[in-house]
C-alpha cells in the first residue's frame, strides 16, 4: 500500500515537471487572469498596514496597493485572495509562485533586491527607526539617551540598527530584548526600560493603545532608512511594471487632484492632457501593461488616490495616527519625497 503511494507520488512529480516545461512561457498576468483573482501576500496582522477587522476582511495601507493591482487588472479590487505568512518565509513564498506579489512592510535593501531573485517595484511608505520615551524623562533628542536601557524586538534589523546608532554616536546602552511585542509594550509601560525602539510607524500604532498616549513622545531622530514597498518575482518585467505603475497611478492621481469622488467627473470634463492620458481618455498608456485603457480609472475609483489610502489606514484620524504633513510620505510638492514619474 505504501509502495503504491510512493510510486504515485513519483509519477505525479514527473507529470508535474513535464507540464512545468510548457507552463514556463506563461506570463504572470496571463496566469492571474486565467485564475480570476490575484494572490497577494501580506504578513501576520500588523495594525494599519495589513490587519483583519471584526468582519473578517483584510484592510490597511499595504493591502490597498494589492487591491489597486487587482482593480487595474480586473476592474474589481475584491478579486483577490490574501496569503498571510510569517516574515521568515515571505520571500520563499513569493519565489515559489504561491503569491503573485508581496506587499507587507518589506524594506528595500541591496541584498534583498539583488540576491533573492526578487524585484522591488517602488516605495509606498517611507519608514524609519525611532525611539519612544516617557515625557517625564525630560528627553528631547536621541543623543541624550547615553546609558539608557532600550526595549527592542530580537532577531530583527531593528536590533542591529540600534547597535549601529549607539556605536556611531559613541554612547552606551543596555538592550532589553523581547520575542513578543505585547510583552515588550507591557514591560516598557511598567518602566522596565527607558526607551522603546522600532520603526516609527510601529511606535505610533503601539502608542495609540497605551493607557495614556499623551505621556509618551517619539524622538525626532530617525536612525535608519526603511523604504517599504511591493515586491515581485524577477524575470517578468511586464508584471513588475503593472505593480509599479499601479502604485504610481495613486500618487499621480493625488498630485493631479483626482480622488475616488471626482474621478468620474474628471474623466468626462477634464481638459488636462495628463489627466486624460491617466484616465485612458486619450493616448495608449495601457497597451504596454497589457491592461484595458481604464485601468488607472478603476484604481482611483475603487481604491482611491495615495492620500485617501494613507488617511484611511494610517492617517491622523485612525488609531495608528502617523501624521503625514512634513513627513517623507508627503507629496514632493508638499515637502515630502513621494514622487511618481510622469504619465506620458
Amino acid at each position: 500500500m505504501k509502495l503504491k503511494t510512493t510510486l504515485l507520488a513519483v509519477a505525479a512529480l514527473a507529470v508535474g515537471a513535464a507540464s512545468g516545461a510548457q507552463a514556463q512561457t506563461k506570463s504572470t498576468l496571463e496566469i492571474v487572469k486565467e485564475r480570476g483573482y490575484l494572490n497577494c501576500q501580506v504578513g501576520q496582522p500588523n495594525p494599519g498596514f495589513y490587519s483583519l477587522d471584526d468582519k473578517g476582511q483584510w484592510s490597511g495601507h499595504d493591502v490597498a496597493f494589492c487591491r489597486a493591482v487587482a482593480a487595474a487588472i480586473f476592474g474589481d479590487p475584491s478579486k483577490i485572495e490574501f496569503q498571510s505568512v510569517t516574515s521568515q518565509v515571505r520571500f520563499t513564498s513569493l519565489a515559489n509562485g504561491e503569491s503573485d506579489m508581496l506587499s507587507r512592510t518589506t524594506t528595500w535593501t541591496t541584498t534583498r533586491d539583488t540576491q533573492l531573485g526578487l524585484d522591488f517595484t517602488t516605495v509606498t511608505f517611507y519608514d524609519g527607526q525611532g525611539f519612544l520615551v516617557n515625557k517625564s524623562m525630560g528627553i528631547t533628542s536621541a543623543k541624550q539617551l547615553n546609558g539608557a536601557s532600550v526595549c527592542v524586538l530580537t532577531g530583527t534589523t531593528t536590533e542591529l540598527n540600534l547597535a549601529d546608532y549607539f556605536r556611531s554616536q559613541g554612547m552606551n546602552f543596555t538592550p532589553v530584548t523581547f520575542e513578543d511585542v505585547n510583552v515588550l509594550v507591557d514591560t516598557f509601560l511598567k518602566g522596565g526600560c527607558d526607551a522603546y525602539t522600532n520603526d516609527k510607524s510601529g511606535l505610533a500604532s503601539r502608542r495609540s493603545a497605551f493607557p495614556t498616549p499623551g505621556d509618551y513622545v517619539i524622538l525626532p531622530e530617525t536612525i535608519s532608512k526603511e523604504p517599504l514597498g511591493p515586491v515581485v518575482r524577477e524575470g517578468d518585467n511586464q508584471w513588475g511594471d503593472i505593480v509599479r505603475w499601479s502604485a504610481f497611478a495613486t500618487i499621480v492621481a493625488e498630485e493631479l487632484g483626482i480622488n475616488s469622488g471626482n474621478v468620474e467627473e474628471m474623466r468626462t470634463t477634464s481638459k488636462n492632457p495628463e489627466i486624460r492620458r491617466l484616465l485612458g481618455v486619450e493616448g495608449n498608456l495601457h497597451t504596454g501593461l497589457g491592461l484595458s485603457n481604464d485601468w488607472a480609472y478603476n484604481i482611483i475609483k475603487t481604491v482611491g488616490n495615495y492620500g485617501e489610502i494613507y488617511e484611511a489606514f494610517v492617517g491622523e484620524k485612525t488609531p495608528v495616527n502617523i501624521p503625514r504633513a512634513g513627513s517623507l510620505n508627503a507629496l514632493w510638492t508638499n515637502g515630502g519625497v513621494l514622487y511618481a514619474p510622469p504619465f506620458r
Binding site: S19, G20, A23, R35, G97
Partner: peptide, 9 residues
C-alpha cells in the same frame, strides 16, 4: 510548491 509547475497550486 517548488516542485510544482508554475501556476499550479
Amino acid at each position: 510548491p517548488l516542485f510544482l509547475p508554475e501556476g499550479v497550486t
